[in-house]
Design a protein around this nucleic acid. Structure first.
Lengths: 244, 244
DNA sequence: TACATTTAATTGTCTGACAATTTGTTGGCA
DNA sequence: TGCCAACAAATTGTCAGACAATTAAATGTA
């Protein structure tokens, strides 16, 4: 592990990169212990605080974990789906908010991806997934529900749809798209009328999965996309009027 | 910005979380300057090295950037698509390799997502995207190409397909799926015979996009998935034999 | 005014120290 | 012998203070 001698960025960044590359390229395996901070400082010819900054960078990316005490130290971490989800969602959310992605674009992406899951979900959905979807549909029909709670339930419903495809890679990729859109969706006010329409479409989707009719799921998702889009446009239009 | 007084994790982690939350919840906007390290140390009642470790954590997540000199400091960073891509791909690649995702699962996810793009790509593809795809198809037909180069060209081709949908959110989500699979794909040896089959399928996909026939693109992608799967299975079978 | 110089603010790095935590070891005791 | 407590060692976590490097603003000068 060596640092490039002529590069400009911070020493701690260089060292972090050197170690990161070692992990990513498989030169260090899961649960392998890194040299102690003092040893790394010697190896890289820097002080311990600099090494520590590098290690904290890696910890922030969930690439290592540290343990105090004798025979403690930094260990290569096993990246779990849960943590990867978390990072992915954080990044996606920021990306959407900072880059002012339009509601249309986000919506289009989300439903395109969900439609990709539908055929798989039709063949693989478990009773559990169906039950979750039915339960959320029921909740969405309750009159006293706040907009936020309705939205959260919506996310749960759609995650169940995605998870029903029973493909962890798909679930991971889509978690970002669905959950990252929640802040955008939260801006929508769901009237009793619009909730009714959405519940009907959700019911059609759940039915399609239960009866294994992918074509109907596809159609319902198309309609839901179109409907969500009109709701979103109304909000945006109202907002524009307000600002003008 | 305050730290939870009763939590156990490192001070630097707590401080990083406090600042991260402020950024994610929009309490700090892009390009806003954070207090200097000395001020943060005062605010949080910790030493400067501890603050620095926290800031390095945030820098590792591309949430802030730092600038030296007078009126320098840490600034909330504008997260670009390119950086988000990079992080997403790194995480996805690690996830695939560490969790021993099967070739089948990864393949299924990848092509399901690509099929989701196809209809959009048919209506929106630019001359540029088509040209890229044709160029890569031509390259893939060259006899002297190494397996790695063939693979890289394959990735470029498929990224062009995804980008043709002209939806940055879709491109971002799929970059992980397509590029993260490259290490898995690299294990495959592409014979002249299999390359010919792939080139034919790629041609059909490009044709479908050019003629705006989404159904044909869908079919070709299904066939490509099935074919890739058989290639992958052969490799796995050979590998198993070798180990036995 | 235009340009060079100084100055102040800020991050980057180092040194050395001590606290906190965990593990292995040793010694005493039954 | 076998068990338990105290101790030693290794390692990360935190702190204080210092100096170097860098950069923008302020200042002085032609």
């Amino acid at each position: 592990m060596k640092t490039d001698p002529e590069t400009k960025p911070d020493l701690s960044a260089q060292i972090a990169k050197a170690i990161r590359d070692a992990i990513i390229e498989g030169r260090m395996i899961v649960d392998e212990r890194l040299p102690s901070e003092a040893e790394l400082a010697d190896q890289f010819k820097v002080s311990r605080p600099t090494v520590r900054e590098a290690l904290k960078r890696l910890a922030a990316q969930s690439l290592i974990r540290t343990q105090r005490g004798a025979f403690g130290g930094a260990f290569v971490r096993h990246l779990s789906y849960e943590e990867a989800y978390g990072q992915h969602i954080t990044t996606s959310t920021l990306l959407l908010s900072m880059n002012a992605v339009s509601f249309e674009t986000a919506c289009e992406a989300r439903y395109a991806l969900e439609r990709a899951c539908a055929p798989l979900a039709c063949t693989r959905r478990s009773a559990d997934h169906l039950a979750t979807m039915r339960a959320e549909i029921h909740r969405q029909g309750q009159p006293g529900l706040s907009d936020e709670a309705f939205c959260a339930s919506d996310v749960t419903f759609h995650r169940a749809l995605v998870d029903a495809a029973n493909n962890p890679v798909l679930s991971y990729q889509l978690a970002g798209a669905v959950e990252a859109m929640q802040p955008l969706m939260n801006m929508i006010t769901f009237t009793a009328r619009s909730r009714e329409t959405i519940v009907q479409l959700h019911t059609r989707i759940a039915d399609a999965l239960e009866h294994e009719t992918p074509q109907q799921a596809d159609t319902a998702l198309h309609e839901l996309e179109a409907y969500t889009l009109t709701l979103g446009r109304d909000v945006m239009a109202a907002r524009t009027r307000q600002n003008a």
